[in-house]
Design a protein around this nucleic acid. Structure first.
Length: 579
RNA sequence: GCGCCUGUAGCUCAGCUGGAUAGAGUAAUCGGCUUCGAACCGAUUGGUCGGGGGUUCGAAUCCCUCCAGGCGUGCCA
């Protein structure tokens, strides 16, 4: 059920009946103020401008044709030509019954499901996951779950960085460690440190850099000893990532890993095809594509290198191969890639070349969803005082520990076990929500305080709303599933909640179309906030409340709890009976 | 130099297919627990929407320009 779409259709029909062209946009949206009704249609004014007629008169004609019998209780004409729609309370109550009786909360399912390939997380296996990896991982995961909830077929792809040039350096260093009888697990216990050691040797030690480069060539050539070393490295790195995913409640599994190395056998084919089609040409010893659609710093066509002068391949080659694989083998209808904004130009180039080469037919959408870098308080790229980055594991543990402290204060009666379980849900939820609720395509500022806050517009606020509802059911001595779905919308708080509940699908659609989970965060916060106001204003279990009203309010509570739970589940945030 | 992104309340951010009086959280101040959980609710204070032009009935939103910041711009990913 998408009310906005329904009203859009109705107003559109009225516009056509009033003599307007069929493609006129009704522009129905939520009303900006309560006195302007629940929804408003603004399209008449734009149409009037085009036709050079009086908007007010045109709006009158459209309203005459507008048939919202049973849906709206009042349609008003206001200002220069706004059409304000006040929805009918009985109609709203009936819609709520549909939501209550549907296990998908009446969110309509795709009639023709799409196959959507979603590329996200993609940690670099050379390093431990740090706070910068948070965004791609959790935004991607939220979009994935939203797509699945709507009925699309999703194929997760974790495009792990397991094949870069830096691996030569890491392998050389690991080899030396093993030669001096160290065990791989011990050597790699601290990935960050291991990487730093290798980098220092690479920069300073005579001969090491050359050995590192040899390792790259050997690795890409399939040398067995290299492959063994590489595999040890990869296994430990992956285990680390999986630990983080589990803690973060992210749905990625080992089966979703399709690292850069997976495309290695196909890279030469990609080059052959590009050469055969004369899309790529040789230039200064390298194989490149000149892209006329974009320009470089000299105003000439931008250069897209697909093979280095030494014969090596680059991430451009890998991404082209990945594109071909996703279209050809995975049958993608849509490809979504989450990376930071620095790669925006790269993916634009990949798309242009892939389309030209026929790897990516026009019917397939290719969405690169960029997001900004994390900055420090000073607006400069984020670093800790010691110059490093904050490890993701460290941030998560800190969040859990702070939640635990708070929880102990508020509920001293909890057992250790309960404490651990709840503080993990609260702490992780807080971190995820604070990141997911931002929609920054540009850079954003990392802030311990807001990231670890449990008050205001945070995950704990939403979890608290859910727990409060469960508390009411306990007190009433009924289960939410036993409540008869009958609604009585009389108080303003109840109407506001009914409206909000019925907008769940609208929000999900927007999240899926634009890959913006922050809209879902906003929505759930508003829902919880409306519930808190309702909670204060409308008593439920008090003795002077009639059974009819009591039941209706409990039914409303049940729907709110379900929607909160489902919405948070899409964000990968858990709810609990008590907190 | 060129390209992309960004500039909204003290701080962190929504809002951006042009719509009516620009919203939250936080911080500050005040009020509310003998009544369904105060991680809450209510109220007040706080804005030249970076500056300047333009388009029009109407601009935070679209266009131009300037300023500031971030990123990218041929052999890293």
């Amino acid at each position: 059920m998408n009310i906005r779409l329904l009203l859009n259709e109705k107003v559109s029909a009225a516009m056509v009946a009033a003599g307007l062209p069929e493609d006129t946009n009704p522009a129905v949206s939520n009303s900006t103020k309560p006195q302007f009704g629940d929804y408003q249609a603004n399209g008449v004014m734009g149409a009037a401008k085009k036709l050079k007629t009086n908007p007010r008169e045109l709006a009158t004609k459209v309203v005459e044709q507008l048939d919202l019998d049973g849906i709206a209780e009042k349609i008003e004409l206001a200002g220069p030509g706004f059409i304000n729609i006040h929805l009918d309370k009985t109609w709203l109550a009936n819609q709520l019954i549909n939501v209550a009786n549907d296990n998908k909360l009446a969110v309509s399912q795709r009639k023709t499901p799409q196959t959507v390939v979603v590329d996200y997380s993609a940690p670099n296996l050379a390093k431990e996951m740090h706070v910068g990896h948070l965004r791609s991982t959790i935004i991607g995961d939220a979009v994935v779950r939203a797509l699945e909830f709507r009925g699309d077929k999703v194929i997760r792809q974790n495009h792990m960085g397991d094949w870069g040039t830096q691996f030569g350096m890491l392998l050389a260093h690991l080899n030396d460690k093993l030669a001096s009888n160290e065990v791989a697990e011990t050597a790699l216990a601290d990935l960050e440190n291991f990487y730093r050691e290798a980098k220092v040797r690479f920069d300073e030690e005579v001969g090491f850099a050359d050995r590192a480069r040899d390792y790259v060539v050997k690795l890409q050539g399939g040398d067995p000893q290299c492959a063994t070393l590489w595999q040890q490295f990869i296994d430990i790195s992956i285990a680390h990532s999986e630990e983080i995913y589990q803690k973060l409640n992210v749905s990625l599994t080992r089966g979703d890993i399709m690292g850069e190395s997976s495309y290695n056998p196909d890279l030469s084919n990609v080059i052959d095809e590009l050469m055969a089609q004369h899309i790529a040409v040789e230039d200064q010893g390298a194989k490149v594509v000149f892209i006329n659609e974009m320009t470089n710093k000299d105003g000439e066509p931008s250069v897209f290198i697909v093979q280095k002068s030494g014969g090596g391949y680059l991430y451009s080659t890998t991404d082209l191969s990945a594109c071909r694989y996703r279209v050809g083998k995975l049958n993608a209808d849509r490809i979504i890639i989450f990376t930071d904004a620095r790669q925006a130009q790269h993916f634009k180039q990949v798309e242009i070349v892939a389309r030209k080469a026929g790897f990516l037919p026009d019917r397939i959408t290719y969405d690169h969803c960029p997001f900004g870098m994390m900055m420090g308080d000073d607006g400069k790229p984020f670093k800790t005082r010691t110059g490093g980055t904050i490890k993701l594991a460290e941030l998560l543990n800190e969040a859990i520990s702070r939640a635990s402290t708070l929880l102990k204060e508020k509920n001293p009666e909890y057992t250790e076990e309960q404490l651990d379980e709840i503080s993990e849900k609260v702490g992780i939820g807080a971190v995820k929500f604070s990141d997911l609720s931002k929609n920054r395509t540009s850079d954003y500022i990392f802030n311990w305080k807001t990231m670890l806050s449990f008050e205001g517009a945070t995950a704990p606020y939403l979890q608290y709303a859910y727990s409060r509802i469960q508390s009411i059911f306990r007190k009433a001595g009924v289960k939410s599933s036993e409540i008869i779905s009958e609604f009585d919308i009389s108080e303003p708080q109840e109407k506001a909640l009914a409206m909000k509940l019925l907008q769940f699908e609208e929000v999900l659609d927007a999240v899926i179309t634009d890959c913006t989970p922050n809209l879902l965060c906003n929505y759930l916060y508003e829902l919880a906030s409306l519930y808190m106001s309702f909670y204060e204003a409308c008593p439920i279990l008090r003795s002077d409340i009639s059974n009819k009203v009591k039941n209706a309010r409990l039914a409303l509570c049940a729907l709110i709890a379900e929607t909160l739970k489902q919405g948070l589940e899409i964000l990968g945030i858990e709810v609990m009976e008590r907190m």
